[in-house]
Design a protein around this nucleic acid. Structure first.
Length: 699
RNA sequence: GGGCCCAUAGCUCAAUUGGUCAGAGCCCCCGGCUCAUAACCGGGUCGUUGCUGGUUCGAGUCCAGCUGGGCCUACCA
């Protein structure tokens, strides 16, 4: 590790078809950010890149369904991700996107370089003639030949669990357009991974320090035998296959793009190029990617293991055979998944905590702390709002926050807020020895990406501080042994100053506030390009000299109230219920009626009316009697809406009225028209506003 | 169907790779303290290490089987 001159860190590119949630953070982002900030504070030469993954069929299909363009979708989620990541304190050196020109150029260069290693194959694939898209098996549904389940997927029936191929389905249909898919012949370039399995196995054999879940997964792939993997797709969205390569192979390049899993990892490289350009040194990225002594780490979730440990490394090896050599990952510390309140995360079922929303309710550092405590390092873990509250209140606030607060408050209240002189004393020596022991363990854990262990060591430091404070009893010695009291507080203040560095990778915002309270200057910022002579190595030393004036004491970590976490839980429950209603159990949309010609529509006379009087009709469940001003006359209209709104809701409203509906008697009263209302799938009525003057026609 | 990971205190996790009585933190209970965010410090309760068998002087650790949870199975990116 020490022989490495620089560190290159990547986090999996988030797919730009939805917002960032806490599951993303726990897997690939927060651990990487902690690691990177730590290395920067240590003075290591580190570059951290990430970006939005913006290609692929899923985005095209989402665009079709939403009636918009892929570009509009990726723009939206790219912006959202950037904003949420920044608010969460992610400290990328560069956050790119795979739709950028640099990326297109980079990915095409890679494809061109290793094109000779690909195998061109022609196969039959499902095509949706209506959406004009080739379909993944997953996007075809039909009746299961085994159990007759009507909605079996093209790859598997979820009812009986049998593995299927789309051709076996009875009455197959596209989930995109409902059209019947047809088989078409297409040619694609395949990466023949099986041919290079021995080479990959040899390389993986050297990675004995990798996590067992990662190695196990890889072993499983090897046992299965690596196969050919298509590196191109027929899609209207993506990086186009280089035309010269296609023409040389006798293939029409029209509509052919690089497969997202070919182009996404290259996104790390193109993000680095963009970073280098922004640094004013366009070739600088090569120093990191194309040298042996770079320590490359990919932070990912477990679903990405195969791509980061087998296919991308193979791509790098092949690129190295024919062109520039790339450094292979030193480690791929994949995390497992985070569950929420005991249930699997599912964006379609509305079961997730969106980062943007969580940040509206709580400071980023609280979320960072609780997530680090619940990090799925060895197995799936569970995030509950109760645990979140307990971790923040009992550990962050009571242990760390309170140690700092009691120290600073004591100094300000009784010692003029001036750092006192420190004298030699056995318990102080013991305190610093204990602290540096924990700091050494903390350092090792951080360097090995064991974040849960790291945070344990961190909390042990402030726990030791609390014990020292208690045992030394400065509140008593300030009356009978002032020098003793001074030394106690000075020691605690030194510890606080050290903590402002130790907590920085985990809690960057709190660390800065703490330094402001201590008026501690010169500590290096853990964000990219941070300057300052004080770093991780200086953390154990004397950072505050006697006579130094402290700033205003301030509560660093406030407690999370019961009501706050209850609100979050309820928000999740509500969203899940909505999603469930919308998905299956919910009422279907009312089918569209048969076509009418314009003349049929023109027979309607729609007018704007103002409701002057609205009152419930006695003995009627549904009716509200309205007197409506149509400008030219005043009418009595009976509206059957009392189950959905009160008379007061209608009073004074400007609404759309069917003015030429034949009068009709209800409950002994005549209704001279009809008020238009919107009715949703659940049958709920909402009034239509017509902000115009009474009597206006509506067409 | 096949492969892989995981299972230890009420909860979240350790256990130097087979070696003393299986340890921490949180929760809970008792005591102390009062500088501090009803914070802090000390003490305590809680375990047939998922189940069944095997190897061994010795098994949480190795082997076989079973049960349960999870992931992957190549187009969910």
């Amino acid at each position: 590790m020490t022989e490495n001159k620089r560190i290159l860190v990547t986090s999996a590119l988030p797919y730009a078809n939805g917002p960032i949630h806490l599951g993303h953070l726990a897997g690939a982002y927060l651990p990487a950010d902690v690691f990177v900030r730590f290395q920067r504070l240590r003075g290591e030469d580190v570059v951290y890149v990430c970006g939005s993954d913006e290609h692929g069929a899923a985005i095209v299909i989402k665009a079709l369904k939403d009636g918009t363009t892929p570009q509009a979708i990726v723009d939206r989620y790219h912006e959202m991700a950037e904003k949420d990541f920044a608010a969460f304190g992610m400290s990328f050196d560069h956050y790119g996107r795979t739709s950028s020109p640099t990326h297109r150029e980079t990915a095409r260069e890679w494809f061109r370089t290793i094109a000779e290693d690909f195998v061109l194959k022609t196969e039959r694939q499902l095509y949706d003639p209506e959406a004009k898209l080739f379909l993944a098996d997953r996007f075809v549904i039909g009746t299961c030949p085994n159990c007759q389940h009507p909605d079996a997927y093209g790859d598997q029936c979820e009812k009986c669990g049998s593995a299927l191929s789309p051709a076996e389905l009875i009455d197959p249909r596209s989930t995109v357009s409902d059209a019947t898919p047809e088989l078409r012949e297409v040619s694609h370039w395949y990466l023949p991974m099986g041919a290079h399995q021995a080479r990959l196995e040899e390389w993986i054999a050297t990675k004995t320090h990798w996590k067992s879940n990662v190695l196990g997964q890889i072993k499983s792939w090897f046992t299965l035998g690596l196969g050919d993997r298509a590196m191109t797709r027929d899609l209207p969205w993506g990086v186009p296959v280089p035309e010269d390569v296609a023409q040389a192979a006798g293939v029409d390049p029209e509509g052919k793009v690089l497969y997202v899993w070919f182009d996404a990892p290259i996104g790390y490289v193109s993000a680095s190029r963009e970073w280098a350009e922004a640094q004013g040194d366009p070739d600088r990225w090569k120093t990191y990617w194309q040298s042996e002594d770079t320590r490359l780490l990919h932070f990912i979730g477990k679903d990405n293991i195969v791509f980061h440990t087998l296919s991308f490394p193979l791509m790098m090896m092949l690129h190295g055979d024919r062109g520039a050599k790339y450094v292979l990952p030193e480690n791929v510390p994949a995390n497992e998944f985070l569950n929420f309140e005991g249930k699997k995360l599912s964006t379609s079922r509305g079961w997730a905590v969106w980062l943007g929303e969580a940040l509206e309710a709580f400071p980023a550092d609280y979320l960072r702390y609780a997530l680090l405590r619940a990090l799925p390092e060895t197995k799936d873990s569970d995030f509950t709002w109760a645990d979140f509250q307990a971790h923040v209140n009992n550990e962050l606030a009571d242990n760390l926050g309170n140690f700092i607060n009691r120290t600073v408050a004591f100094c300000v209240k009784y010692l003029d807020g001036t750092v006192p002189a420190i004298e030699e004393r056995d318990d102080v020596t013991a305190l610093f020895a204990a602290a540096s022991e924990h700091a050494a363990a903390l350092t090792l854990a951080l360097d090995e990406c064991r974040m849960r262990d790291a945070i344990n060591e961190l909390m042990s430091i402030s726990r030791a501080g609390n014990k020292f404070f208690n045992d030394a009893e400065p509140w008593r010695t300030r009356r009978d042994d002032l020098a003793h009291c001074h030394t106690t507080i000075a020691a605690c203040l030194q510890l606080c100053a050290s903590l402002s560095i130790y907590i920085d990778p985990f809690l960057p915002f709190t660390a800065q506030r703490l330094r402001a309270i201590l008026r501690l200057e010169g500590v290096r910022d853990s964000r990219p390009g941070g300057e300052g002579e004080l770093g991780w190595a200086e953390a154990g030393g004397r950072l505050l000299s006697p006579g130094h004036a402290l700033g205003e004491p301030e509560i660093l970590v406030r407690k999370v109230e019961d009501a706050e976490v209850t609100a979050q839980r309820e928000l999740m429950e509500k969203r899940a219920a909505e999603a469930a209603a919308a998905a299956s159990g919910g009422a279907p949309y009312t089918p569209v009626k048969d076509d009418i010609v314009y003349d049929d529509f023109a027979k309607l006379d729609l007018r704007v009316g103002k409701v002057l009087v609205a009152e419930r009709v006695k003995k009627s469940k549904k009716l509200i009697r309205c007197e409506v001003d149509l400008g030219f006359e005043r009418r009595q209209i009976l509206a059957g809406v009392a189950e959905h709104m009160s008379a007061e809701d209608l009073q004074g409203a400007t609404v759309v009225v069917v003015a030429n509906l034949a009068p009709r008697k209800m409950m002994g009263m005549e209704s001279q028209g009809m008020l238009l209302m919107a009715e949703d799938r659940e049958g709920k009525l909402v009034r239509l506003e017509a902000p115009s003057e009474p009597g206006s026609t509506v067409s």
